[in-house]
């Protein structure tokens, strides 16, 4: 039994602690917003937050989440409002197939948590681990900047 908090809910997951967190989230907790893309930490499709930090859940064992807080795309916003990143993704019509976008948004949200005025190169550094085969990078960049502005506005 691994105890963790998943999207603000305390949970005990009955799974092998060596199981990658990705499969525990998808198969055991049955939250399928987090995606498989490579299984090797190369593509970012499986990005979730572990105590607020972006991690690749395909190469992180479930045991690493013991006693910790995990946030997935389903928990990024709340019932009342989307996260500013999600809202900016919607406004800029970022997704094509959408499959990589949970991971993209989780990486972007983590970036904005630590840097609410990222430069182009900050964005590229934070996002280079997230592949989008459909080719939505220019819109992702634009959406991140817009989300950053909206976060700043909300703060001031």
């Amino acid at each position: 039994m691994v105890k963790l908090t998943l999207n603000n809910k305390a949970l005990s997951l009955d799974a092998d602690p060596a199981m990658p967190l990705l499969y525990a989230i998808r198969d055991i907790a049955e939250l399928t917003g987090t995606k498989f893309g490579c299984g090797l930490g190369l593509c970012g499709a499986c990005t979730v937050h572990l105590n607020g930090a972006p991690i690749r859940s395909c190469v992180t064992p479930l045991s690493a989440a013991q006693g910790k807080t995990i946030t997935t795309i389903e928990g990024l916003g709340n019932d009342d409002a989307m996260h500013p990143v999600q809202a900016a993704w919607l406004a800029n019509k970022v997704p094509q197939c959408g499959y990589c976008q949970s991971g993209q948004m989780m990486s972007a949200a983590a970036l904005l948590e630590s840097n609410d005025a990222p430069s182009d190169s900050d964005i590229e550094t934070a996002m280079q681990g997230n592949i989008c085969r459909c080719g939505t990078y220019p819109r992702i960049k634009k959406a991140i900047k817009e989300a950053a502005e909206n976060i700043q506005k909300a703060k001031s």
Binding site: T32, K35, E74, L76, L90, K93, P95, G98, M105
Partner: peptide
């Protein structure tokens, strides 16, 4: 689009 950005879209893997 809204389903995609909230992680609710269903793909074959899901």
């Amino acid at each position: 689009l809204e389903k995609i950005v909230t992680g609710k879209a269903t793909y074959a893997q899901d």
